[in-house]
């Protein structure tokens, strides 16, 4: 036995030497390719890191740059190279002193929240109808929703702006001058409409997946169809509702075009954050550090929201995608 194992090890050593000799004859790249073919993990791993680092760099570097610009004291931006030229964290307080930036943030939050609530309510009803009922004309109707969502929002701007600037006498008791311009409605109405189709599609997918038996059970137990929607279907579609809600909220919060043009940019006219950030740009002077600081402050709530809701959003998006 012992002799046998001995000869075996000798043989193995001999073949190992041969192999080593072969390897020495190849260049490093050739060797790496050869190894990668026999063990693909060796190729995947560096590629994974390469791509990951690339994505992290392209997404995070702008934030770093923003932070650096914010921290660099006013007027010293010309010599900036990867590190801030000076250190001025006080800018995060100054932005609130120069302009009522908190009022702009409040405006944005109110507009985004109300738009989200409207979108979720209406899209829930539409999602219930498209997802759970069958009726003639359902396909064409859904296509119409899809079609409308493909329109460039800017196409609606001029007629809407004209409409919102019209004084409508029946609105006078509610709005000071009877026109919607410079009210939150000027943003809430078009932005809700723009983000509605996406929410309808997400919720349709989710509501259609709730078993009929649960809705039937709720109706037998004593709810109406609407009651079953709100008591059973919506709670069970929580990831979908959260996804639609967060996407709408972020979309409205980040929207530029309507936000910029539907108010006169004054905080008391319900101008959103965007106008606040641009407000640091005066006729003779542009406070880049304040703009950067305000941008960071404006992004923070969204970053927090996404981190908190991330799990639900991911499960919501994939669950929708993997239907059947």
């Amino acid at each position: 036995m012992a002799a046998e194992t001995e000869t075996e090890t000798i043989e193995r050593e001999a073949t190992g030497e041969q192999k080593g000799e072969q390897e020495r004859n190849r260049g490093p790249l050739e060797r790496w390719v050869g190894d990668s073919i026999s063990d693909p993990g060796r190729a995947y791993k560096p590629m994974f890191w390469l791509v990951t680092i690339f994505f992290l760099f392209t997404t995070l570097f702008p934030f770093y740059w923003l932070l650096m610009v914010a921290l660099t004291p006013e007027g010293q931006l010309q010599d900036v190279w990867l590190t801030p030229n000076g250190f001025n964290p006080g800018v995060f307080i100054e932005v609130f002193e120069i302009l009522p930036f908190h009022r702009y943030m409040f405006n944005s939050f109110v507009i985004a929240t109300v738009a989200t609530v409207i979108v979720l309510l209406v899209a829930s009803l539409a999602g219930y109808v498209f997802g759970r009922l069958s009726f003639p004309g359902k396909g064409p109707l859904m296509l119409l929703v899809l079609l409308v969502s493909f329109f460039p929002p800017a196409a609606f701007f001029i007629p809407l702006n004209d409409l919102f600037n019209t004084q409508i006498s029946i609105l006078e008791p509610v709005l000071s001058d009877g026109s919607i311009y410079n009210t939150p409605y000027a943003l809430i109405i078009p932005l809700s409409a723009i983000f509605m189709p996406l929410a309808i599609f997400i919720l349709t997918t989710f509501y259609s997946q709730i078993p009929d038996g649960l809705e039937d059970a709720a109706r037998v137990e004593g709810t109406t169809r609407l009651g079953a929607l709100f008591r059973v279907i919506i709670p069970l579609s929580a990831p979908g509702v959260a996804t639609a809600g967060v996407l709408t909220f972020i979309g409205v919060y980040n929207e530029f075009f309507f936000s910029f043009l539907m108010t006169d940019g004054q905080p008391q006219s319900w101008a959103p954050i965007l106008d606040g950030i641009l407000g640091y740009q005066g006729q003779y002077q542009t406070l880049y550090n304040a703009m950067a600081a305000a941008s960071i402050i404006g992004v923070l709530p969204m970053a927090i929201l996404v981190v908190v809701a991330q799990e639900k959003i991911v499960s919501g998006l994939t669950a929708g995608g993997l239907k059947e």
Binding site: P211, G213, L214, D216, A217, A218, V220, E221, V232, P235, L236
Partner: peptide
Amino acid sequence: AMVFQNIALFPH
């Protein structure tokens, strides 16, 4: 009152 084949308890 009805008892369903798939039991249909409200999971939440």
